[in-house]
Design a protein around this nucleic acid. Structure first.
Lengths: 211, 211, 211, 211
DNA sequence: TATGAATGAGAATTCATTCAT
DNA sequence: GATGAATGAATTCTCATTCAT
């Protein structure tokens, strides 16, 4: 988010691979995402992140300017992480997509990140933008389109679905059983009920609840 | 929120009303709940809490032993705060109850508290217990009973509803519109769709264990 | 040391014995001596003393003005506690007197007190005076008299004996075995060797080491 | 004192000589020993130590983990500081060795440290071990050997001598005259009387185990 | 590029003391 | 005479950040 080109971990620049700044940067981002997602911004010391990344603490400031900068970079990265999830796929896949998002340890951290705040305005702005985009992507599956009036209710309902996903991740990470121990597959059925009721897939032509 | 003016010493000591330990304790609890709910455990200095309560910082340690103790006390208090919400009321009232819980500034802090962790084991235990009870109370409205086999799915679905409520509160507090600005009333309709689909009220006859 | 008459725990002023200030005062002194002796001045919170005395903390300030005042009072009290030990007794009893002083749990606290400092000038002055008197009392047994020139060496030697006693108490309280577990009786023999060599009892007429 | 200028990094980094961790560490240790010896553990704020060492307070935690850790490190260091004192030297030198130990401002702090307790169990264990070793080293000069029965009395007598030394240091630091102002040389004679009486040097022939 | 030393601000907690009853 | 509430200063420790190499 501050300096150096963003060559997201390209393969083997030099055989010895000493002093690979892009790699170091990415390791920091990965470790940071994990810790920020789990323990929140205030709850994670930068040293912990650097230790897990296996690099020196001061590199956080070198690469990201500050702890806030690192957090903002995590959020920015989360945009991509979430985009491909909600990219085009048959609308009726949504329940299983959510289930996988919620259950996949590689993905749910992105969702958790979205409810962690550093108090920093810039970061919060990124965060809210990501949330908004995510909601719109969900709403689009039910026929929502930008700048079309009366779409507010659809957007609201999409945000309800998003709420469910985020709440699920939180309660799972809190260890609330049976939710925490339910397999991805077993989550699909109740989620299908939920999505179909709250955000029914766009039916061509007729949409009875005239919003 | 238990804001009865003279909490324990019932005989109205003096018009100036200073040196009332029960009252001081409660003021600390109220301020703490607010701050912990909004900014998380690590994100709130005890001094901030004490300042808002208008008392000296050291009283936190005097009355609650430590910051952790204060946090645990908030959680314990949240049990009662949430209990009466889920107490007996016609099952079909659930959507509007959730809506009010989510929208009422006096109540949603209890929900937020449930996804804040201090890392302290004791506090986490209380937290998980409250969550579990809450889920069971919701499930009971759909006919769930403790120790009855095959109830797991109902419990899971109840926890999904709880997830939605918690997610909503979080996204509202993040300022995600339109969700954040939707009135309590307007939340009821989509919530009704959601609850009816995920956790349909017990149907007489079909489910013999008539609770 | 500050207020109220000093009626050192006279017997039963009133049958019910409620609100007996002299008694309270003495209980504080007793508890304070124990704690100051064992843990030093800075190492003992006044609350600990008050708790052991079974009275309210603020009475320390009421009766002794401050923590320093309480400490000074303990030292003052130690004067009497130590005086009767070194009062007139046959000089050849000195080793067994020291042994008993060192071993008796009721007495050695007075000795310990003498090497605890609060940093307060007034208290340190009392302390040094007690130490000086103690040394003189020991020296007197070897013929030392105030204001007689050339008595310095005798005083020095007496202070060496005092050093031994104090060092013994400290090492015993540190738990250094066998010293810590040696009975009073078994201490007498080596102490007799020591005293006889360092501070030989006054021999009438001839004292060969012409000091 | 171990005041050798460049403690570990032997290659003389730069004339300004900053950023030398080993040196910083040692400066902290030196200052700590002084303060702990004089004012006890509870009586010395870490800030005072850091100020005297001329470094930032937080380095205490960086290098020693905690105040307790620093104290324990002082004790550990005292082991070496005291060892060479009691190393092999003709037994009849003991009185003058004690005199120098007691009078040398670079040494007596080690002795004082041995009667200061932090209440920490680990530190107390080190302390008692050092005391024990010291006593054994003294006893060895009188023929004591480990695991030889009947050696207890010798050990006890050696600990009496140690008591004297420690008591002397304490009373000197309390400013008790004449003891406090007596020169090292003038201490030797009374100490010789004391040592010869309490812990007579091993006599050849009489004690067959000729060590 | 990377490291480790050092700093300074802030945070929680302890504790002697004062106040009001 | 005694209690418990409340205060403010001081203390230890953590942590993000900067400096020098």
């Amino acid at each position: 988010m501050t300096a150096s080109p963003p060559p997201t971990s390209t393969q083997v620049p030099s055989p010895t691979r000493r002093r690979d700044s892009a790699r170091t940067r990415q390791r920091l981002l990965d470790a940071a995402r994990r810790h920020f997602a789990r323990n929140g911004y205030a709850g994670t010391p930068v040293r912990e992140i650097a230790d897990e990344a296996g690099v020196n603490v001061s590199l956080v400031n070198r690469y990201f300017g500050s702890k806030e900068g690192l957090f903002a970079a995590c959020l920015t990265e989360a945009i991509d992480g979430l985009r491909h999830t909600t990219a085009d796929a048959p609308p009726d896949m949504l329940p299983s997509i959510i289930a996988s998002e919620v259950a996949d340890p590689g993905h749910y951290e992105h969702l958790l990140l979205l409810v962690r705040s550093s108090g920093d305005e810039r970061a919060d702005q990124i965060r809210i933008e990501v949330l908004r985009n995510y909601g719109e992507a969900l709403a689009a599956r039910a026929g929502w389109q930008p700048d079309v009036p009366d779409g507010e209710d659809l957007l609201l309902r999409a945000q309800l679905v998003l709420s469910t996903a985020i709440g699920m991740v939180l309660l799972r990470s809190a260890g609330l059983h049976p939710l925490a121990s339910t397999s991805e597959q077993s989550l699909v059925a109740p989620l299908r009920d939920l999505v179909n009721a709250v955000l029914p897939p766009e039916q061509k032509g007729e949409r009875p609840n005239g919003v």
